[in-house]
Amino acid sequence: MRAKYLQNRGSVLFWTTVVVGILDAVAAMTVYYVFFNLKPMQVYQYVASGIMGKTAYDGGAASAWVGVGLHIIIAFAATYIFFILSPRLKWIRENVIVAGMLYGLLIWVVMNLIIVPLSLIEPAEFNPVDLVVVIWHMTVVGLPISLLINKYYENT
């Protein structure tokens, strides 16, 4: 019985990370193309610049792949944190949609007010497009994490 639990636990973490990673990637590539005419490689070079600095923009596809890797790590971390919190906080299980939306907002806040300032990414001024980014994090990152993780806990 224990092995099945671990397998299912691993599956929910893997598939939630995949779903959220893809949804977030599509949102990022779409929004940054529509508003700033950035190509997907440029979006992920920006992500890579968090650890590579400005050299990420000269690194071609290799630095973009570093950005993709970082993106997946961040998606997994967000998924795992919610996975750990969900069974401990009854409010999350009773308010799955609101919890997911708030978690997406929290992810955006942590990334933009803590992680990005501590990284090598060049500081940027607030832009009205950031509101679109907040909404996408609430709806295509936080909400799916909450729905999928809570579905897992309903079945265990």
Rank of each mutant, 00 (worst) to 15 (best):
Met1Ile: 14
Arg2Ile: 10
Arg2Asn: 07
Arg2Cys: 02
Leu6Gly: 06
Leu6His: 08
Gln7Trp: 09
Asn8Val: 02
Gly10Arg: 05
Gly10Asp: 07
Ser11Trp: 08
Val12Asn: 07
Leu13Lys: 05
Leu13Ile: 06
Phe14Met: 11
Thr17Phe: 11
Thr17His: 10
Thr17Ser: 14
Val18Gly: 03
Val18Trp: 12
Val19His: 04
Val20Arg: 00
Ile22Pro: 13
Leu23Val: 03
Leu23Asn: 01
Leu23Cys: 09
Asp24Met: 04
Val26Thr: 01
Val26Glu: 01
Ala27Val: 06
Ala28Tyr: 01
Met29Val: 12
Thr30Lys: 07
Tyr33Ile: 01
Val34Tyr: 11
Val34Ser: 00
Phe35Ser: 04
Leu38Met: 15
Leu38Ser: 10
Pro40Leu: 11
Pro40Lys: 09
Met41Ile: 08
Gln42Lys: 13
Val43Cys: 08
Tyr44Pro: 07
Gln45Pro: 06
Gln45Met: 07
Ser49Lys: 04
Gly53Asp: 03
Lys54Ile: 08
Thr55Arg: 13
Asp58Ala: 13
Asp58Cys: 05
Ala61Phe: 14
Ala62Lys: 10
Trp65Ser: 09
Trp65Met: 14
Leu70Gln: 14
Leu70Ala: 11
Ile73Cys: 09
Ala75Gly: 12
Phe76Ile: 01
Ala77Tyr: 00
Ala77Asp: 03
Tyr80Ala: 13
Ile81Gln: 03
Phe82Val: 02
Phe83Met: 09
Phe83Cys: 10
Leu85Asn: 02
Ser86Tyr: 07
Pro87Phe: 04
Leu89His: 12
Ile92Asn: 00
Ile92Val: 14
Glu94Val: 03
Asn95Cys: 04
Ile97Pro: 05
Ala99Phe: 06
Met101Ala: 15
Tyr103Asn: 07
Tyr103Glu: 09
Gly104Ile: 00
Leu105Arg: 05
Leu105Trp: 08
Trp108Pro: 02
Trp108Met: 02
Ile114Leu: 14
Ile114Ala: 11
Ile115Arg: 01
Ile115Ala: 12
Pro117Arg: 07
Ser119Glu: 09
Ile121Leu: 15
Glu122Met: 13
Glu122Leu: 14
Ala124Leu: 11
Ala124Asp: 07
Glu125Thr: 04
Phe126Gln: 09
Asp130His: 13
Leu131Gly: 11
Leu131Val: 06
Val133Cys: 07
Ile135Ala: 15
Ile135Trp: 08
Trp136Lys: 13
His137Gln: 08
His137Pro: 00
His137Val: 00
Thr139Ile: 12
Thr139Val: 13
Thr139Gln: 04
Val140Ala: 08
Gly142Thr: 04
Leu143Ile: 02
Pro144Arg: 12
Ile145Phe: 00
Ile145Gly: 11
Leu148Asn: 05
Asn150Tyr: 07
Tyr152Ser: 12
Glu154Val: 08
